[in-house]
Design a protein around this nucleic acid. Structure first.
Lengths: 147, 147
DNA sequence: TTCCTTGCAAACGATTTGCATTGGA
DNA sequence: TCCAATGCAAATCGTTTGCAAGGAA
């Protein structure tokens, strides 16, 4: 296989550690997600790649990539699960979730504000019998298109 | 109908404004959710009330109660939608989401920390073409039972 | 009486899986 | 060669809906 970008190389390495092949179908999905504004569902990816991959293969690849820690799932409206690159690949961020169309947009905040969020998360998890691995501020509202 | 608690009275009033009846089935659901640690799915509620209500009625009541602003949905693992009392009934809070079993536990933080979160939310929504209505800090990790 | 609500069963849509085939190391 | 990966079709599972019966105002 020919790695064509730093992203591909990172993903390939991670998958190799799990003895999983970075096939062309999986590359297509990873690249589609790398170019997206936010998480995409299997159906949205199917459209995005113009049906180049059958839905069942998309579902299987998404599951494998999630298992390997390459993708992270986001559960949204109407029982749709959308996927995005894991944070070690795309950086820590938060979500703007449209209550009308369900679209999710990624946002980042400056370090100062992120530190404040971290402090709140630490306080919460230290008080609860709960081991925190990650967090995201989910902001619900109406996106520009649905306004 | 005999209102048996302040909660029932508040819900009944709200539903009356929408010309919706606060039937016994709906009372059962609202009370079950009032006594829960976090959001519950239709199936979980079905179990919780020992099948006293058929699933289809539970789904219909949940939809009606959400429409009336009595319940708020939470989208979780495996495409399950869980419901909880809306924030005007139970107060603002955040979520601890178990990545293993999918259970969601509610948590609250003190005013100081909540203000910090608010500031971050305001900064984000002011910079994005997005009208924020609500937010929740979703903390992913492993709950005590799954640890 | 008049609507709202309920229950059952059938329909739906997102996701999963069995199985035979293909393809990469 | 050998096993992972794929594609198709059928199966699953959460959820929704049509329709006739029940219940409250």
């Amino acid at each position: 296989m020919t790695t064509s970008s730093g992203l591909d190389r990172e993903v390939e390495t991670r998958l190799a550690e799990h003895r999983i092949r970075y096939t062309s179908g999986r590359q297509i999905l990873v690249r589609a997600l790398a170019g997206a504004e936010g998480p995409l569902s299997a159906a949205e990816l199917h459209d995005e790649v113009s049906g180049a991959l059958p839905l069942s293969s998309i579902y299987r690849s998404l599951a494998v990539l999630e298992e390997a820690g390459v993708l992270a799932p986001h559960h949204g409206t109407k029982g749709l699960t959308r996927y995005e690159l894991a944070e070690w690949l795309k950086g820590h961020h938060h979500h703007l979730v449209c209550i009308d169309c369900g679209a999710v947009e990624d946002v980042t905040v400056n370090d100062h504000h992120e530190n404040q969020v971290d402090r709140v998360v630490n306080e919460i998890s230290s008080k609860a019998a709960f081991t925190a691995f990650n967090h995201a501020l989910e902001i619900e509202g109406r996106c520009a298109r649905c306004a």
